[in-house]
Design a protein around this nucleic acid. Sequence first.
DNA 1: TATCTATATTGTAATATTGCAATATAAATA
DNA 2: TATTTATATTGCAATATTACAATATAGATA
Lengths: 110, 110
Amino acid sequence: MGITKSEHFTDEQNELATLAKAIGHPARIAIIEHLIKVNSCVCGDIVNELPLAQPTVSQHLKELKNAGLIKGNFEGNAICYCLNEEGFNKIKGFFQHINTYLENKKNQCC
Amino acid sequence: MGITKSEHFTDEQNELATLAKAIGHPARIAIIEHLIKVNSCVCGDIVNELPLAQPTVSQHLKELKNAGLIKGNFEGNAICYCLNEEGFNKIKGFFQHINTYLENKKNQCC
DNA sequence: TATCTATATTGTAATATTGCAATATAAATA
DNA sequence: TATTTATATTGCAATATTACAATATAGATA
């Protein structure tokens, strides 16, 4: 049906899924990597960095913003984008949990 | 169009996106959390743990397996599932990169 | 071998996502 | 104010995802 049964899962599970889903597209990975690479707020050159049309990039930026992974400030007629620490911190705990588990697990059959 | 232009992105970007996308569903988060919680290979009780029909769970398990995030071994007529370290290690680096960046970034406008 | 149990596959309907052309908006500047 | 520049929104077509009933498969056991 294409419709996720969110109501049957916990808020935390839904939130983590939303964050991971937002990261789950190569264009959005590329945007995140670019924001890190230039190490400053980026005013609009993201469209030129990506092999996609402007409306498509705008849509991807919107999804990252909605998920809480990037922030955008108006700066004149342009917009400055940068990573939103809050969003990434929420995922951080999840992966730390997994890594700690994987480092310590023993007696596994697979 | 619903079709991702993977060919325009690097292999690494596509791979990270595939992994994140696989994690990006609450049912699959729940599966991962369950595998950690029981701290052993799980033989089939995953269907009972989730509020979804058996074929749907089977489909989610397949997606996690295809992405390299879990492994499954036949154990009699059941199957043992557990986390696949390899898949999670691939994402680990990405998030470490982001976290290191976020901890050190300064002079940001947003 | 027949049956049971556990899991996978197939087929299908509903919904979501991706991408872009066309267009709208909004601030800056001529 | 008219124009330019940067970004967002709308509308739409193509494809992907989600969910499940029905069915298939495959090993275990009676």
